[in-house]
Design a protein around this nucleic acid. Structure first.
Lengths: 201, 201
DNA sequence: CCTACCGATCGGTAGG
DNA sequence: CCTACCGATCGGTAGG
C-alpha cells in the first residue's frame, strides 16, 4: 500500500485537513454512496490511516451531515447574492436559474447528489438541521417566482409550479455531462424558456 | 426471533415465492437503499432464513437488477397501452403524463426510487440491460412530444425540453405524499398545464 | 428451503 | 495522527 503523503503528524493547518476530508467524503459519497464508502476510503484519499478521520469528525454520520450543511450554506449565499444583483423580476428569475444550475452542475457540486441519494442515511436530528437550510433556499426562490408572476412573466406561482420547476432543474444533475454539447448557460437559457416562455401570458 | 410464517419447505408455488422476494426487496431497497438492505432483511420479510433467497436468485445484485427490469417492463407496457388508446396528439400527451405519474406514484412504484438511488450499485452488464428498457420507454414518450409539437401544442420537442419534462415529472416522487392535498390526477393536470399551456403557441 | 458456517470487511476505540 | 485491535455484521456456500 502506498501512502500518498507524509502525515502532517502534529502541526498547524487543522482546518485544512478537515476541509480535505470533507471534499474527499463528498466526492466518494457521490460516486459510491454513503453506505458503500468506508472511512478507510476517505482516509486513504487524503493520505490518512483508517482511525484518523475520527480525530476530526466524531462519526461517519457527522461527516455526511457536514458535507450537506456546508454545501447547502454556500449555495444559499451564492443564490442570495445572484438574486440581489438583478434589477427586474425577469432578470432575477434568470439569475436564479443560472445560480441554481451553477450550484447543481459546477465544481464542488458533489453534495447535491449526496443530498438526494443519501438523505435517508441521516439520523433524525441531522435531517432537521439540513432541512432548515434547504427551506431557506427554497423560500428565497419562491419569492422570485412571486415577483415574476406579478410582472406577468408566468401565469402561476403556486406550490406545484414551484415543485415542477425544481424538478426540471434538479434533474439536470442526472444527465448533464461537462463534455456534452450543451453548456451550463445553454441549459439555463433553455430552462428559462421552458418554465417561463416569453409569450406565455 | 419470530418466524412470520411456516416455510413452504418443498412444494408447488415456486414463482410465487420468487415474486414475494422481489416485492420485499423492492420495498426494502426503496426504504433503506441497496447497500443498507441485507439479504437477511429480505429473507425475514418473506419468512425465510438467511441463506434461502439464494435458492431463487444467485446474488443480491441479481435481485436488484430484477427489481428494476421487471418494474420497467411493466411500466413500458402500461405506457404503450395508454398512448395507443388516445385519439389525438393532445390526448396522447395527457395520457402519457397520467400513465407516467401513475407508474411513478402508484402502488408497486418501489422500483422507481430504486432505479434512481441504486443505479450505481449495478454492475456494468446489468446497467446495459436496464438501460435498454429505459431507452425504449423514453423513445415512446419522445414520439408523443413530436406529434404534440406538429399539432401546435408545444413550441419545442428537442432533447432539453424532453429532459426538463422528465425532470418535472420524475421529481414528483421526491415530494408526493398519498395523504397530501393533491391527487395524482390533480398533479397530472397541473403538469400538463406547466409543460404545454394551451395558449403557449 | 434450512442449518451451520466461513472469510472478509467495517465503524469505531485505546493508548500513545 | 498512527498502531493495533475489537465486536459485529455481511454475502455467500456446503450439505442435506
Amino acid at each position: 500500500m502506498v501512502r500518498p503523503r507524509k502525515a502532517a503528524a502534529l502541526g498547524g493547518d487543522e482546518g485544512n485537513r478537515r476541509a480535505e476530508l470533507l471534499r474527499a467524503a463528498g466526492r466518494l459519497f457521490r460516486q459510491k454512496g454513503y453506505e458503500a464508502t468506508t472511512i478507510r476510503d476517505i482516509a486513504a484519499a487524503v493520505g490518512m490511516r483508517s482511525g484518523s478521520p475520527f480525530y476530526h469528525f466524531k462519526s461517519k454520520q457527522e461527516l455526511l451531515k457536514t458535507v450537506m450543511t456546508e454545501g447547502l450554506s454556500a449555495a444559499l449565499d451564492a443564490q442570495a447574492a445572484a438574486i440581489a444583483a438583478a434589477d427586474s423580476p425577469r432578470a432575477a428569475f434568470r439569475a436564479m436559474v443560472r445560480a441554481h444550475l451553477a450550484t447543481v452542475l459546477g465544481p464542488g457540486a458533489d453534495f447535491i447528489p449526496v443530498l438526494l441519494y443519501d438523505w435517508r442515511c441521516l439520523d433524525t436530528d441531522s435531517r432537521a438541521e439540513v432541512k432548515a437550510i434547504k427551506d431557506r433556499y427554497e423560500a428565497l426562490c419562491a419569492g422570485v417566482l412571486v415577483e415574476l408572476k406579478r410582472a406577468g412573466g408566468i401565469s402561476d406561482d403556486g406550490k406545484l409550479t414551484r415543485l415542477f420547476m425544481f424538478g426540471a432543474l434538479n434533474w439536470v444533475s442526472q444527465w448533464y455531462k461537462p463534455e456534452g454539447e450543451a453548456s451550463i448557460d445553454d441549459i439555463a437559457d433553455a430552462a428559462v424558456a421552458f418554465i417561463a416562455p416569453e409569450n406565455s401570458v
